[in-house]
Design a protein around this nucleic acid. Structure first.
Lengths: 335, 335
DNA sequence: CTGAAAGCGCTAACAG
DNA sequence: CTGTTAGCGCTTTCAG
């Protein structure tokens, strides 16, 4: 293995000069830098990660805790993870993958052993058991999602309440008077996943504000459940003309079900969704939707972490404003 | 930070004794071990990962390279990743997440900097550009999937050829004489992803062997594409009564399309699939399928890596035999 | 702008 | 069964 002293000897400089040439933490004459870089290339030198971590007390690794629960949409998690890894690399960091299964012990372990410099935690619950730990850890963290008590933590997420509102406002603007929210599977609400509840809040508030009749319907992530919900909606809310869907897997089946029940989208029924743009675009009926910006959230989460690692203060809360894209699934209500 | 010398002093032993008590690499008297463990607990000692890696030249971290390409089924990747992480933890290892985007440089980087001890590479192509690198690396690796030239590498995967065969044999056994394979999206074949081609080989060979008329149809992963394929099949192969599907996202839409075209499953048409059991079970018509054992592959990949890290020789090729589960989508052909 | 040298915290000979 | 000690390879004072 070629080490820094080898490079130093080969370039005719001291090890510290090689180190500084690499880190840029002190000025190096252009000529010296050239020689050092040439030697590095020639010898194929790679600094030893462990040695570096030991000497600098920085591992340049971030922990990413991904959820395993049911009721979450896997592609979103994956997209987010990829975005975190890609962004971390831009900052010269790597990403250690942890599953939620590891729980608090896992977080403590990777933090206390200095395996990672900082943590990103996905799928935060309203009363997440990991919050006290994260607050007490000596390493910075960023949460994806907002708990009930976010004080002392750094959180980022789409503003789901505003997203729910925007969907309703859009439907109201098109003249719809009776709307329904088809939401995530029941267990998601039972677990008190913040984002799901926030959508409900926004949806309901905006409906009330606009004088719309509204109802909320959790829904399992299966086509059969979608069909049942569609039938139930038509039966119980015959005047319904606007639906907001916050449940990726059933988006297409639900629209299919409505059409099979004789309702045209958007002719008889306008549909808006909160989901990734790629999904909304790819459906048979492209759906007007508020984007779930996983990639952006991942990017910004890493950015926040880097600032914190650099000693810069960051806002405790970052709520990304909803961005609604008009597609083919919404239309004015028939007069 | 509490370090090993602190523990040693507190327990009245030497640092090496603490180290050995932790690693079990040499016998420690029961009494000493008790004292050491008590001190560790009391002081909340956690060995520094970097120091450990430097001194032992083992980071206890595995690299996992996940694919990003289109045409792969995300939940399978995720399930595999989770299985790798979970299994790695059982062996006291962690997992560093790399995206395929990083390419060969990324692999070389994490290997050469000693960030990881070993690598797991998913989505291996027939002529994967990373193969020479993996062969030359001084760290062990395991590939998920088989390239054209697997010599000198450790590979593991479901035996996709046998899987294709099993599906056909099953249909043949039920009396079906005309069968079709609805496969992965065209780009998957263009990329020469080994597993997709192997399914085709097995499918075709078994069909020929059994004297069945057969055809192969790559298919995009959209419901619309599924519909088109269904129509095309009925038009071009009116005698068709058996279908093998190797394309998760379209499994349900395809069956829907067949039924909307007037074909009952399994009454008029028997369907078998190669897909995760959870998917096959969850469909409206539970589908007879060969399981895609992501969890098992992940587990065994880690197991192989651990053996290699321990200096034990392992087989170059591990092909998991297909396991077909009978569900509601297959029936004997009408006489 | 550069060098010398003191660790970072742990492991693994070596010695007993 | 246990202790002593020499590194592992790098970063970062301190000194010039």
């Amino acid at each position: 293995m070629v080490k820094i002293t080898d490079v130093a000897r080969h370039a005719g400089v001291s090890p510290s000069t090689v180190s500084y040439a690499l880190s840029g933490k002190r000025p190096i004459s252009e000529e010296t830098r050239q020689r050092v870089e040439a030697s590095i290339r020639e010898l194929g030198y790679r600094p030893h990660a462990g040695a570096r971590a030991l000497a600098s007390s920085r591992s340049n690794v971030l922990a990413l805790v991904v959820p395993l629960r049911t009721g979450i949409h896997v592609p979103v998690v994956m997209q987010f993870a990829v975005s975190v890894v890609t962004t971390a690399r831009r900052y010269d960091h790597d990403v250690l993958l942890l599953t939620q299964e590891e729980g608090e012990d896992g977080l403590r372990r990777v933090a206390d052993t200095a395996l990672v410099d900082a943590l990103i935690v996905m799928d935060v619950q309203l009363h997440d058991p990991r919050l006290p730990l994260l607050r007490s850890l000596d390493r910075p963290s960023v949460l994806i999602g907002f708990p009930a008590e976010p004080a002392g933590l750094t959180c980022i997420d789409l503003d789901f309440m505003a997203a729910g509102e925007v969907c309703v406002e859009r439907l109201a603007g098109l003249g719809h008077r009776v709307v329904a929210l088809v939401g995530s599977p029941p267990e998601v609400y039972v677990r008190q996943t913040a984002f799901a509840q926030r959508v409900v809040q926004g949806f309901t508030a905006a409906a009330d504000r606009n004088g719309l009749a509204s109802s909320v319907h959790p829904c399992e992530a299966s086509p059969a459940a979608a069909r049942r919900i569609a039938e139930q909606l038509l039966r119980e809310h015959p005047a319904l003309t606007g639906v907001v869907v916050h449940n990726e897997p059933i988006l297409e089946p639900l629209i299919d079900a409505f059409e099979q029940l004789g309702l045209r989208v958007p002719g008889d029924l306008s549909v808006t969704a909160i989901c990734p743009d790629e999904l909304a675009e790819s459906l048979r009926v492209p759906v007007t939707s508020v984007a779930l910006p996983s990639a952006e959230v991942g990017e910004r989460a890493v950015g926040l972490l880097m600032k914190k690692l650099g000693g810069t203060a960051v806002p405790e809360a970052t709520l990304l404003p909803p961005r609604l894209t008009e597609r083919g699934s919404t239309a004015p209500r028939d007069a």
